[in-house]
Write a protein that binds this DNA or RNA. Structure first.
Lengths: 276, 276
DNA sequence: AGTAGTAAGATGTCCGACATCTCACAAGGG
DNA sequence: CCCTTGTGAGATGTCGGACATCTTACTACT
């Protein structure tokens, strides 16, 4: 006869006290809530160091493993920052790119990348709309500088630098929007763009065409015109989209889930002739 | 508790460092990648059951605890679904609401919520643009149904049901866009909306005004008009934004970082008179 | 005074055991 | 015959301890 089943309420020697019997909900979940509650109440503030894991386990009367799993959940969500040998800290709200846990849910191949581009249009459109209102002189100078750097890299033919400066430019766009949540969301999809970006540049050498697109975006923001800016963003990303669609078609995959170029342009611009 | 001495862990994010991982990487991280790789390669497909934790530990030659932490990370990210007593499964891509891990990170007070609303405009604008192209008859029927449910709840004065049906409607919007990444991103900010939504409804009983907004959005999609749809979305969320701004002003906080209602409308619509 | 070595503290990892939940299937009673 | 009961296997949840490794600070030696 094994221990399972209707064994009498007998406590095995050395097994400790299973506190879990009291709480119907998983202990880890409770610990997660307790930690977030300490943060929400202000008892723990961004930058603060949490007690050590064994100490937390003692405070909550649970095993260290449960504490670790709770911490890991909060770390994945970007609430906590864990540094080996030093401790666990409350993360600054969205300040650091918490991309060290590369989402990597969909690894961006073909049509999946099309989805990413569609998300980008949404996020960057909102970004430039906000930037038209909030961008400071420094922001504008920064964006112009990034455009110039990107252009220089493109003329040198340095694809690696080109890729980096391209990302830098779009990052400066998001920064000019002055919305940390928007910026954080954008950062989540950047890693999935990188591979594609580099590949496109290598294959096509078509990057020169992207420089004017960047300039159009900046000009729209300088003019404080949300419509112009959004249209420029849509045209720019739609160009990327078209490159991707071509690549997908040539690779033999059927791009049935991807949109036509005119569809995309019509769907995301307010100007009917914006596609020209 | 003054812990000011130790600066929060900082990472030199300057150089980009895409592959700084020459150092020995944590086992848990490697396991996480291995599991995602099995999913990405198609070896594990949505709905499939993973081997048991001890079996995975044996395959990877690591401890069960490391496997558990990797699984927990993937669960938090919505990639895996863990059911006690049954096993671990590859989650269907966004079919089920994986809201069991209530984010609740930043408590979303005041201006922070404004940021969330600004993100929502971007995401939902993109969603309706895509929905104008991709929405099926079923999608349209679903959206109409959700609008009706929301209206019924509003007339009954059931704020709880109203809150739920409101969320359901917006969820059906995102579903009609047929972009899983977009949908996933939207879901990340939904929990932060919930509190505010309920509070607004309780205080103001102003929800009746939101029903026509929903109807306008659906009408725009039915007409396959991205411009109309996007304008309707912008007007709808801008109305929420205005409610929030009013609440913030009354609470004494200065809404200096929030936009004026006209600014917002002008920034996100293509029709100058859309604000009327 | 400067540097190398060392100790303390924290997270990372592994192991083994028990607890509890879920499901399938067989045994029993209406 | 159907329905209830319970028994068992299999899986996740939790606990406790031990050791490994990294970070930091302090000490001791040159």
């Amino acid at each position: 006869m094994s221990r399972s089943g209707s064994a009498p309420p007998e406590r095995p020697a050395g097994a400790g006290t299973p506190y879990a019997a009291l709480a119907r909900r998983p202990v880890t979940e409770v610990i997660t809530e307790m930690i977030t509650e300490r943060i929400r109440s202000g008892e723990l503030r961004p930058g603060d160091k949490l007690p050590a894991e064994p100490e937390l386990a003692r405070q909550f009367q649970v095993g260290r493993g449960s504490v670790r799993e709770a911490i890991r959940t909060l770390h994945t969500l970007g609430v906590l920052q864990v540094v080996r040998g030093r401790g666990t800290f409350v993360a600054e709200p969205m300040s650091q790119p918490h991309s060290d846990q590369f989402v990597g849910l969909s690894s961006a191949s073909g049509p999946e990348l099309a989805e990413i581009l569609e998300v980008r249009i949404g996020l960057e459109s909102a970004a430039v709309s906000l930037a038209c209102v909030r961008a400071t002189k420094d922001d504008l100078a920064e964006m112009r500088k990034r455009v110039a750097e990107h252009e220089a890299a493109a003329e040198r033919g340095d694809v690696h630098a080109e890729c980096r400066t391209d990302e830098d430019f779009h990052d400066s766009l998001l920064r000019a929007a002055h919305n940390q949540n928007l910026h954080a969301m954008y950062r989540m999809i950047v890693p999935q763009m990188s591979d594609f970006r580099l590949e496109t540049l290598k294959l096509e050498r078509s990057s020169q065409r992207f420089v004017p697109g960047h300039r159009d975006i900046v000009n729209g923001i300088v003019a404080r015109s949300p419509q112009e800016s959004r249209n420029a963003v849509a045209r720019h990303i739609a160009a990327l989209y078209r490159e991707l669609r071509t690549a997908v078609e040539e690779s033999g995959s059927s791009p049935r889930e991807m949109l036509d170029f005119p569809e995309l342009i019509a769907g995301f611009t307010s100007d009917p002739e914006a596609g020209g």
